[in-house]
Design a protein around this nucleic acid. Structure first.
Lengths: 334, 334
DNA sequence: CTGTTAGCGCGTTCAT
DNA sequence: ATGAACGCGCTAACAG
């Protein structure tokens, strides 16, 4: 292990000068600076980051704590976060909450104990013992923590649902069914609101018969379609609040002998990978996940560098991706 | 910030005793130990891990460097790695290689510079300047690095392909097409070998007409089916070396008016999430991904704790998951 | 068993 | 512009 002392010795200067040459080059005369840099090169000196960070009381670590690390939806967000962390010299520690209080506490403690400088949260709850006051520097992405006052990167779920339904309305659909998400999630409420917004704006009263519960799982999509079928409820389009349920709906419709999109238009939400590979490729609402990750990390960097945040809430835009699971209602009669 | 000194003061002992109470409780008389623990509790002392690690010259960090962080196949591996890291007091730093030498080098340097104790690799190449000699403690998972001598956790791809084809043979299929993976990957070769193994064991000579190239993407599956169709090559089953291509094949078969599995049996590899949700649910070869992650991290822990590795190569077993995309060849005539 | 002493490798005053 | 000296918070000999 080659230390700063050896470099100093070889260059014939003090360790302080070596340190300065690295941290504040402008405070060192060019002549001696070159001397030091030469010595560094010949000795192959590389500062011990552990010592540097210890001295500086910074870690350049950020903990990324997610509800469920296996959620494929997070993948691009991971990339966005890692990308900006890398660019800013930060490291990302990955934490998987798994609905386990103890795990969450241990990861939060990591940053409390100065093992990391900040915490990026992608989950919608926190153990009760964690209060706004005793939490470290935190940024929330994707979800909302109502009881806390964290800066956040969110997605305009309400708008997403609205433009999805507007798309169906523009295609001439009037009887549009809706399948929701887990009731406790803010995003479920938001998406439902967007659905209602669009209908109301089109002068259509939301019909309770067409509003079905869901839990974001495949089976819920199937169940919803079956339910509508058994009750002989008439509809020409169905909007499911995530893609997995939409795929379930398509499968069930097919097995009931109804064609998509000829008989029923189907639209999902999230635009996950398999939305493209499903048959037919699914029309869906795309969230800029890469962007969400980048923004969250950028917020963290700003926060940690003492910069004032321009906004404590960044709301990412959404867009409709039209594929082949939606079609004009008229084709049904063709 | 409450330090070890305050605790010592309050407990009326030396800082060394406080340190010992935490690190080697058995070396401290129960009486004084309780005294110290009391003091710790009342002061709310929590050791500064940065200082501890600095002093001990350990970081308890492991860098996880993957070829492409957005690959959904890795998800469960992430979980397995995080799980054992968490259980052993390690932290996982996530690194995304993205085919970029500079990124790889920076992550490797992290462990060289004592920012991390070890490196877990999930990629099949390394920049040329990285040699076996100048690499830190490393474990490879899933892929193989032929030019290096790292301990590794692998998957028995050859066997996986073999049992897939044996399944088809048992269903009475004789004309079984095969779609390969990227040629430069070891796993592509292995899976092809398994396909051949099964055929040969059944006394069937591999037919070049039935062996098609692929790249693990959806379109390759479609293309393969179209190719066979256009050339009017006869086959009753098709084995694709990953699930994404298998889904593409199913889609194309459907649009050609051929039913799955009634007319053609389709089987994939990997058993990714959407294999279950595709229509029909896909028969596939499952790799124990959670297990792969766990093993890799366990190897790392063993390595770092100076334990002798029992095996430098752990080969995980695979299993066939039979769903509805495969059926006896006879039903075709039904 | 416990206290004293001496650093780990570096950044940063405060002199000069 | 540079050097001497100190200390970050903790652990690890070495005595006692």
């Amino acid at each position: 292990m080659t230390t700063i002392r050896k470099v100093a010795e070889l260059a014939g200067v003090s360790t302080a000068t070596v340190s300065r040459t690295l941290a504040h080059p402008d405070q060192v005369r060019k002549e001696t600076r070159d001397l030091v840099l030469d010595a560094i090169r010949t000795v192959g000196f590389v500062p011990n980051r552990q010592a540097v960070d210890f001295r500086r009381r910074s870690t350049k670590n950020v903990v990324l704590l997610v509800r469920d690390i296996t959620n494929p939806f997070y993948l691009e967000i991971y990339r966005g976060i890692e990308e900006l962390a890398f660019a800013n010299g930060y490291r990302v520690l990955m934490g998987d909450a798994r609905g386990d209080n103890e795990r969450v506490l241990r990861y939060v403690d990591m940053v409390r104990n100065r093992q990391a400088d900040g915490l990026i949260l992608m989950m919608g709850w926190l153990p009760a013992e964690l209060t706004d006051a005793n939490m470290p520097t935190t940024v929330v992405a994707l979800e909302m923590l109502a009881d806390y006052n964290f800066p956040a990167v969110a997605v305009d779920n309400r708008k997403g649902a609205r433009i999805a339904v507007e798309h169906l309305l523009a295609l001439g659909h009037r009887r549009i069914a809706y399948v929701g998400g887990p009731a406790r999630l803010q995003m479920s409420t938001d998406r439902y609101q967007g659905y209602v917004d669009a209908l109301v704006a089109a002068g259509i009263a939301p019909d309770a018969d067409l509003t079905l519960p869901g839990d974001f799982h495949l089976a819920a999509g199937r169940a919803a379609v079956r339910h509508l079928h058994e009750r002989q409820i008439d509809y020409t389009a169905i909007f499911l609040s995530n893609d997995e349920m939409a795929v379930g709906a398509v499968n069930e419709l097919r097995s009931l002998g109804r064609r998509v999109p000829d008989d029923v238009s189907v639209i999902g939400f999230d635009d996950v990978d398999f939305a493209l590979s499903s048959d037919p490729p699914l029309t869906s609402v795309r969230q800029p996940r890469l962007e969400v990750g980048r923004r969250a990390m950028q917020m963290m960097v700003d926060l940690l560098s003492g910069k004032k945040l321009t906004t404590r809430l960044y709301e990412a835009d959404v867009e409709l991706v039209v594929r082949s699971s939606t079609a004009p209602v008229s084709t049904k009669k063709a």
